[in-house]
Design a protein around this nucleic acid. Structure first.
Lengths: 108, 108
DNA sequence: GAAATGGTTCGAAATTAATCGAACCATAGG
DNA sequence: CCTATGGTTCGATTAATTTCGAACCATTTC
């Protein structure tokens, strides 16, 4: 087919809203996901949660909140998904923010 | 009486939790309050909200969320309240965080 | 000490967010 | 093509947050 309908919508860099970003990061599980992406992209199946028995619909929802806030990118890769941190976009829009959040989350 | 019961509870510096701080800052109205405190303490009555007709119980609740997250201090002063940003505590616990949030909120 | 001012707290109602099963969709591999 | 794998979406339920009036409390002022 000419067009891949598994592409999800991502907000443009300039459309990122600070309060949405802060909200998405304010959940421990979502913050833990972001921390796993700081060293590079990850296949979603390799991205693990605190509770391994969490249903996939819940995991998918966590990813949706992060994606819609503009924090992560979620693109099809093979039969799975590739997740990546939108570090450059975040840094351009909110300088220093994501770095300080990740630093603060590091010493836990 | 020996003890002033109008003193509210504030979390100690070491008890501040990152996710609570992010959550408290993720609301536009609360973020706007914090911005008003960056230049120094303010009497609560002088701290204005986007909607001037907002009931005082709602305003008080906004302050409670900020206070319980450890972002602001709320102490009795005369017949009112004095609000201040806990900048030093935030900076000590989460270096760079509050500054980058305020910077990001500045260019709106 | 009575009234006015400024704010907290409580409880109920409304809004919003999280959870999760079921149904569905796409790709990869037999 | 059939099946397994990986993930999204929908809808319903539950949980958490917000909102706001009413009652209450403390301080100042008269």
């Amino acid at each position: 087919m000419a067009h891949d309908n598994t592409e999800l919508a991502h907000p443009a860099r300039d459309d990122l809203r600070l309060t949405d970003v802060l909200f998405a990061l304010s959940d421990p599980e979502r913050l833990a996901i972001v921390r796993q992406l700081v060293d590079g992209p990850l296949e979603m199946a390799q991205c693990h949660l605190s509770d391994p028995s969490m249903p996939k619909s819940t995991k998918s929802h966590l990813m949706k909140v992060l994606r819609e806030a503009g924090i992560i990118r979620n693109e099809p890769l093979g039969r799975g998904r590739r997740l990546s941190l939108r570090y450059d976009d975040l840094e351009a829009r909110f300088p220093g923010l994501i770095g300080s959040v990740l630093d603060a989350a590091a010493d836990t």
